[in-house]
Design a protein around this nucleic acid. Structure first.
Lengths: 226, 226
DNA sequence: ACTCAAGTGGACGATCTCGTCCGTTTGGCA
DNA sequence: TGCCAAACGGACGAGATCGTCCACTTGAGT
C-alpha cells in the first residue's frame, strides 16, 4: 500500500541538503496555507531559511513543490482506499474513505488548492498507479452496491464529483468546518441505496485516473519538460 | 423584484462613454471566461478596443469590474428567488431556484469565479438588500418544510453550502456539464424530506447575507477606499 | 459654428516575480 | 588533515502588471 508513493527522494543527498529539503517542504505547507498556492517562491525560501537557488534546485517548478509538499496527504488518501477495500463492511469502508479525504481537505489548509491544481496534470505519467486506484475504487463500489448499501446508479466518477465540489467549498470557506461536514453528510446520505427514489442524470465521463488520489506527489520533480 | 440591482449606471454619461462602458463589460465577460478572473486589465481594455485609462476611469478596481460584468447574472439569481416564492408548489420553487443558479454557474464560464470572489465582500454595503434575500429564502424554506417536501433539518445556510460547492466543481471542471448536473441532482434528492433518515451535523453559521445572490453587482465602483 | 467640460489613449515609472548565474562554503571520504 | 564535488545564497536581468499622468479629441448645449 505504501507503494502508492515514496515521500522521501532523499537518497544520495548530502546531509545538509536533505535537511534543507525538509525545511523547504515544511515552509511550503505553511506558506501555501497562509497565502495560497500562488505565493511567491521567494517567500517559501525565506520562510525555510534557504536561498531561492536552493529551492529551485530541489523543485524546478512550483508544481513540483506543491506535489512534494502534499505528498503525505496524498498518501493518506491512497491508504484510506486500501483500508476501505479491506473493511468487511463495504459501506463503512466507502464512508470512511470519503470522510477521510474530506477531513484532510478540511484540516490541511493548503491541500485543497493542491488537490484541484494537480487534477488536470494526468500526462500519462504514473498511469499504472492511477489505473490501480481506479480499479480498487470500482471494486469497492461494486461490493458496496452488491451489499445493498450504495445506490445502484452510483458511478465511480461520482467520487470525483463529490471530492472536487467539497474541495471548492473548503477553498471558498477555509474556516467553516461545519459547512464542510454538512456537505459530506448530505452527499453520503444521498449515496445510500434508500435515497435512490428518483433517477439521476447521466454520469460524468470523468475518470478517477485523473484524480490526484494516486499520490504521485513526490518525485514529480525530475521532469525536464522541454 | 427588479429592485435587487440596477445594471445601468449609465445616467449622466456622455453617449460615447456609455457605449464604451458596455463594450468594456462585454469584453470583460469574454476575457474572464477565457483567461480567468485574474486576466490583466490591459487585456480587457484591448479586447474592448479602449485604452486602459478608460477602463480604470469606469472601474477603478478589478473587483468593481467583475461585479459589474456579472451584475446581470446576479440579477437572474435574485429573480429566481422571487419566482420561487411566488410558486404555489414551494418545493418546485425551491428546486427551480437551485437549478437556475447552478445552471448559470455552469453555463457562464466566468461567473463561478466571480461568485466566490464576491463572497467575502459583505462590507455592510447593501445590507438591506442582503437581508431581504435572506428573509425571502428563509420564508421559502419554511413553506417547503411545512408542505412536507423539504427535510425539516434543512437550514437556510445549506443553500450557501450547495451553491459554493457546486461553484467549486464547475470551476475545477468548466467543461463537464454532466458532473455539475449530477451534483445538483444528488443534493436536491438529499434535501427531500424522505431522504432524512439520519441526523445531520450542526449547520454552518454562514449567513445568506454574505452570498452575492443579492446582486449588488453594478455601482460598486465609486468606492474611494483610502 | 463655437466652446469647453467630459472623455480618451497610450506612454511611463513603480512594483513584483521569475529563474539563472556565479563566487563562496561545507560535508564526507581518503 | 586535506581535497573537491556537492550544496549554498544572494544579486541580477528579463518580463509582466499595475495604476497614473497628461496632451489630445469629441459630444452636446448655445
Amino acid at each position: 500500500m505504501r507503494e502508492y508513493s515514496r515521500i522521501a527522494d532523499d537518497h544520495g543527498l548530502r546531509a545538509d541538503a536533505r535537511r534543507n529539503r525538509q525545511r523547504i517542504l515544511s515552509a511550503a505547507r505553511a506558506v501555501f496555507a497562509d497565502h495560497g498556492i500562488d505565493a511567491p517562491m521567494a517567500t517559501v525560501a525565506r520562510r525555510a531559511g534557504v536561498g531561492v537557488a536552493t529551492l529551485y534546485r530541489r523543485f524546478p517548478t512550483r508544481d513540483a513543490l506543491v506535489r512534494a509538499a502534499f505528498a503525505q496527504q496524498m498518501d493518506t488518501c491512497a491508504q484510506a482506499l486500501t483500508e476501505a477495500l479491506a473493511d468487511p463492511d463495504p459501506w463503512r469502508g466507502f464512508q470512511h474513505l470519503v470522510e477521510t479525504v474530506c477531513a484532510l481537505q478540511r484540516e490541511e489548509r493548503g491541500f485543497p488548492a493542491a488537490f484541484v491544481a494537480a487534477f488536470p496534470h494526468s500526462k500519462r505519467e504514473h498511469a499504472r498507479v492511477r489505473e490501480r486506484v481506479e480499479q480498487d475504487f470500482t471494486t469497492l463500489v461494486r461490493k458496496a452496491q452488491a451489499a445493498g448499501a450504495l445506490r445502484p446508479d452510483f458511478h465511480p466518477s461520482d467520487l470525483a464529483v463529490a471530492l472536487l465540489s467539497h474541495c471548492g467549498l473548503v477553498t471558498a470557506l477555509p474556516d467553516d468546518r461545519a459547512a464542510s461536514r454538512r456537505l459530506v453528510a448530505y452527499l453520503l446520505q444521498s449515496f445510500r441505496a434508500e435515497a435512490a427514489r428518483e433517477p439521476l442524470p447521466p454520469p460524468s465521463a470523468l475518470s478517477l485516473r485523473n484524480l490526484p488520489l494516486a499520490a504521485d506527489g513526490s518525485q514529480a520533480q525530475r521532469r525536464s519538460e522541454g
